[in-house]
Lab assay of single mutants.
Amino acid sequence: AVCQVIGMYDYTAQNDDELAFNKGQIINVLNKEDPDWWKGEVNGQVGLFPSNYVKLTT
């Protein structure tokens, strides 16, 4: 993983390639090539999510 982030809001996947997560959930970021849509993993599920829905862990 590149880094870990925390969901600031609940996110519901809109497409099959997206990653759903809940507020407060830890997401392992796998790829930040696109500044707006990062690739991440939660509980074995991998997908894209909007980078503005998360904050970096300290």
Rank of each mutant, 00 (worst) to 15 (best):
A1R: 12
A1M: 13
A1V: 13
A1Q: 07
V2T: 11
V2K: 13
V2G: 12
C3T: 12
C3G: 09
C3R: 06
C3W: 08
C3L: 08
C3P: 01
C3N: 10
C3F: 11
Q4S: 10
Q4N: 10
Q4V: 07
Q4D: 00
Q4K: 10
Q4H: 08
V5Q: 05
V5P: 00
V5C: 14
V5I: 02
I6Y: 06
I6W: 04
I6A: 05
I6V: 15
I6E: 13
G7S: 15
G7M: 04
G7E: 04
G7L: 05
G7F: 04
M8R: 15
Y9C: 15
Y9S: 15
Y9E: 15
Y9A: 15
D10P: 10
D10A: 11
D10Q: 05
D10R: 09
D10S: 12
Y11M: 04
Y11C: 07
Y11A: 02
Y11T: 06
T12M: 11
T12R: 13
T12K: 11
T12P: 09
T12S: 10
T12C: 07
T12F: 08
T12Y: 10
A13I: 04
A13R: 08
A13Y: 06
A13D: 00
Q14F: 01
Q14D: 10
N15Y: 07
N15E: 11
D16A: 10
D16E: 14
D17Y: 09
D17S: 15
D17M: 13
D17T: 12
D17G: 15
E18M: 04
E18V: 04
E18L: 03
E18S: 08
E18R: 02
L19Q: 01
L19K: 01
L19G: 04
L19I: 09
L19Y: 00
A20R: 10
A20T: 15
A20N: 07
A20K: 10
A20W: 08
F21C: 00
F21Q: 00
F21K: 06
F21W: 04
N22C: 15
N22V: 13
N22G: 14
N22T: 14
K23S: 11
K23V: 11
K23C: 10
K23A: 15
K23R: 15
G24S: 06
G24I: 04
G24T: 05
G24H: 03
G24V: 01
G24M: 04
Q25H: 12
I26F: 06
I26C: 12
I26Y: 05
I26R: 12
I27L: 08
I27C: 05
N28I: 08
N28A: 11
N28C: 05
N28S: 15
N28V: 08
V29W: 05
V29P: 01
V29Q: 00
L30K: 02
L30M: 08
L30Y: 09
L30E: 00
L30A: 01
N31I: 06
N31Q: 12
N31S: 14
N31C: 15
K32A: 15
K32S: 11
K32N: 09
K32T: 12
K32C: 12
K32P: 04
K32W: 12
E33F: 05
E33N: 07
E33P: 05
E33G: 10
D34H: 11
D34P: 06
D34E: 08
P35F: 06
D36N: 11
D36R: 14
D36E: 11
W37L: 09
W37V: 10
W38V: 01
W38C: 03
W38Q: 04
W38K: 05
K39I: 07
K39H: 15
G40I: 03
G40S: 02
G40K: 02
G40A: 03
G40Q: 00
G40P: 06
G40M: 05
G40N: 04
E41K: 07
E41P: 00
E41T: 08
E41V: 04
E41R: 03
V42D: 05
V42T: 09
V42A: 14
V42E: 00
N43Q: 08
N43H: 13
N43I: 00
N43F: 02
N43S: 09
G44Q: 05
G44W: 02
G44H: 05
Q45L: 10
Q45C: 13
Q45M: 13
Q45S: 11
Q45W: 06
Q45R: 13
V46Y: 09
V46S: 09
V46Q: 10
V46T: 09
V46W: 01
G47V: 03
G47Q: 05
G47E: 02
G47R: 03
G47S: 02
G47H: 00
L48F: 15
L48Q: 07
L48V: 13
L48I: 14
F49Y: 03
F49I: 11
F49S: 02
F49Q: 05
P50S: 00
P50N: 04
P50F: 07
P50M: 02
P50D: 07
P50Q: 00
P50K: 06
P50R: 09
S51P: 10
S51H: 07
S51E: 00
N52L: 06
N52R: 14
N52H: 07
N52K: 15
N52W: 08
N52I: 08
N52P: 06
Y53M: 15
Y53C: 14
Y53E: 04
Y53L: 11
Y53S: 08
Y53F: 11
V54M: 03
V54E: 00
V54I: 03
V54K: 01
V54P: 02
V54C: 08
K55D: 07
K55M: 14
K55I: 09
K55W: 04
K55Q: 11
L56Y: 11
L56C: 15
L56T: 14
L56I: 14
L56G: 12
L56D: 12
L56E: 14
L56K: 13
L56H: 09
T57V: 13
T57D: 13
T57P: 14
T57L: 12
T57H: 14
T57Q: 14
T58P: 12
T58N: 10
T58C: 14
T58A: 09
T58M: 07
